[in-house]
Each structure stands twice: as structure tokens, then as C-alpha cells.
Simulated scan of single mutants.
Amino acid sequence: MRYIIIGSGAIGGSIGGRLHESGRSVVLVARGAHYEALRDNGLRLTVPTGTLILDVPVVARPQDVELRADDVLVLAVKTQDSVAALDAWAARPVTGGGTAGERLALVCAQNGVENERLALRRFREVYGVCVVLPSTHLNPGEVVAPCGPYTGALVLGRYGTGTDETARQISDDLEKANFLAPVATDVMRWKYGKLLGNLANVVEAVCGSASDAAAQDLVARSKAEGAAVLGAAGIAYASGAEITELRSGTVDPQPIAGEPTRGSSWQSLARGTGSIETDYLNGEIVLLGRKHGVPTPVNAALQHAARESVHLSREPGGLTAAELSRRIMESGTGRGRESSPWPG
């Protein structure tokens, strides 16, 4: 198998770099300054044992790689960028006939639960991954993955039901590349469990940290809403204890001097990407709450806060958790309504 990593930032760079290091065939896909740095200097992947300089092949566009029948496409972009990426790759021809959407496996190594549905509209063979892979990408050509002894836990499964040989082959390659990669018949249950954990991402991003009492209160309230919504929707999800057990002793933070690990939403604001994934994390809870009649005022307010931060080009920490909580209460959203706490 050859792995085409679509989106070579924190997650894609970690997966692609480790696969390349283990001897697997890999092509990274990147844009702009990140592409230029990877092309000119290789991938600088920092892990607890040191910094690896990896000369991984890199391309900037789908047209720059000739797809083969043994290729696996790994989608590692943020959800807001998925449709554009899927459309760009699905129609690409594959050597021997057919298109990528018809012939190639596509793996969604992404947070949230919407990507697999988007992919299945365009690709016949879709696999989900519950990504437990703390990593950071702030500078072109550089990725920091500070956990060990495994770089990350990647629970992999076919989207739908059951499993197959392709999932097992991908799992085997990931295991040889320093990942814990169990194959699950219920991968979306794991992804919904991870979704609840990711509801904290926006608090860290908007407030700069999720460690003080006010921030922790917002996180707890958002997760309580999420659990209530998933219960009302009849959606099974892995418990926090299951996810903790998965990574305990296997994917443990091993701090690297000068390289603090930040969440993906924090990184989006810090890099000024112009977008954030909150609509597909907290926004998923809001959507399901509206569908099933469960109030989600805290998640709705956090979603508004993320949009405001992007619109105003705020860096992380532009709004304190105490101020955010005050706005929520003054707007009435803290008492069950979803009116916006933001002007305009």
C-alpha cells in the first residue's frame, strides 16, 4: 500500500511521517508555505526521543500524483475543508481505469462525525478513525507529536458495519509505525465518544486555556449537554473511561521542552487560518439538540464565540472564560434559550 496523506498538518504530518519512517510508501499533500518547507527541507517531526528529519515526497495538488490501485487516501484536513478536498480527489483517474472514488479506500483521520458521511457520497470504500493523537503544527514544515510510547491511538473501522481485510492491513501498517491501531466494528461509537471530549477545544481556543475554574465549568456544561443530546438521539458512544483506558500507559504525554501541546482549534486561531472546526464539534451537538428537542445553550454560545473570534481575527485568549460565562447568562442562553450573545 501507498498512503496519500491529504492534509499534512498536526495529524496528517504525524501519521505520514511515522509511516514513512517505518518504511511505508507515503506521499504528503500540503499547500503554501508548508508545502514549500516540506519540499525544500523535509518534514521536521519532533517526538519524545528527538527530532526526525524525514524526506517524504510531497505534492501541492491532486494533479501532481499519479494514483495507483494500491493507494490509500488518508483525509486529515479539518471538517470545514473536507468537501473541497473530497471533490478534488474523488474524480482523479487511477492507473488501470476508474476513478479514486470508485476504486480507492479513503480513511477519515479527523475529529467529528460528519466526514464519513460526506466521504461516502463520493467514495465507495470509507473508513473512520477515532484519532487520539495530541500533536501541534504551528510552523511550516514542522510537527510536534509529544506522546509515548506510542505516538497516538488510532481506532480504525469500516464506515457502516463490520470490518474487512483492508482495515486490517492499514492497522498492521500503523502498528508498525508506532501507533496503537485497533480495528473496531463500531468505530463511530468511538468517534462520538471522542466528540464529547472535543467539545472542550473551543474553550481552550477562545479563552487561551481550559484550566481555570470558569473554563472547566464551561467544559463540564458543554459535555453534559452533549451526553444528554446523544442519549435523546439514541446514539451510542464510548465513555470517557474507555478512551482513558485506551491511552493510559500507551499514549502518555511526554512534554518536550519549549513545545507545549495545544488543541487543534487553538492552533487554528494561532495560525490565523480564517476558519475553525467548532461548527462540526459543538455545532454537531447543537444540530442534534435542535433535531431531538434538547436545549444546548452552552454549546450554541461556544459556537458563536468561535465564529466571532475568527471574524475578528482574534488570537487564542481573546475572551476570558468568566466573560464568556457572563455573556451567556446575560443573553439568557444559560437558561435554556439559544439567542445569540453576540451583537449583530
Score class of each variant (00 low, 15 high):
239 S>D: 11
13 G>F: 02
195 L>V: 01
198 N>D: 11
21 E>A: 15
64 D>S: 05
187 V>G: 11
170 I>M: 15
198 N>E: 11
212 D>W: 01
5 I>M: 15
15 I>G: 09
186 D>Y: 01
13 G>E: 00
221 R>Q: 07
75 L>G: 09
94 V>C: 03
142 E>H: 15
7 G>P: 01
136 T>R: 12
45 L>E: 05
6 I>P: 02
190 W>H: 15
126 V>R: 09
259 E>R: 12
327 R>M: 02
280 Y>I: 05
304 H>V: 03
224 A>V: 03
207 C>Y: 03
140 P>V: 10
323 E>V: 09
342 W>P: 00
281 L>M: 07
260 P>T: 07
49 T>V: 05
14 S>D: 04
116 E>S: 08
188 M>Y: 01
6 I>D: 01
251 V>E: 08
61 R>G: 07
200 A>G: 12
247 R>S: 14
181 A>T: 00
264 S>C: 05
4 I>D: 02
244 T>F: 14
137 H>K: 13
19 L>I: 07
184 A>S: 15
214 A>Q: 08
36 E>D: 13
343 P>E: 09
114 E>D: 13
235 I>C: 08
147 C>K: 02
40 D>F: 03
298 V>G: 09
246 L>Q: 12
214 A>P: 02
207 C>T: 14
289 G>H: 12
142 E>M: 06
52 L>N: 06
197 G>N: 15
280 Y>L: 09
84 A>M: 09
169 Q>Y: 11
156 L>F: 04
138 L>Y: 12
30 A>Q: 04
72 V>T: 14
320 T>V: 00
14 S>R: 05
344 G>S: 04
136 T>P: 06
91 A>R: 11
86 L>P: 07
13 G>P: 03
208 G>W: 03
247 R>P: 05
105 A>W: 10
283 G>Y: 06
22 S>P: 07
2 R>W: 08
139 N>L: 14
32 G>V: 01
42 G>I: 07
320 T>F: 03
199 L>D: 13
201 N>C: 03
151 T>R: 06
31 R>H: 02
139 N>V: 11
83 V>C: 03
318 G>C: 07
138 L>R: 15
83 V>T: 15
80 Q>M: 07
213 A>G: 03
202 V>M: 09
71 D>N: 13
158 R>L: 08
337 R>L: 01
79 T>R: 11
25 S>Y: 00
243 I>C: 12
103 R>H: 05
105 A>C: 13
320 T>H: 00
259 E>M: 10
327 R>P: 00
334 G>F: 10
71 D>E: 11
177 A>M: 05
149 P>Y: 03
231 G>Y: 00
48 P>C: 03
31 R>Q: 08
318 G>A: 04
236 A>G: 12
70 D>L: 08
113 V>K: 04
42 G>T: 12
184 A>Y: 01
308 E>Q: 05
217 D>Y: 10
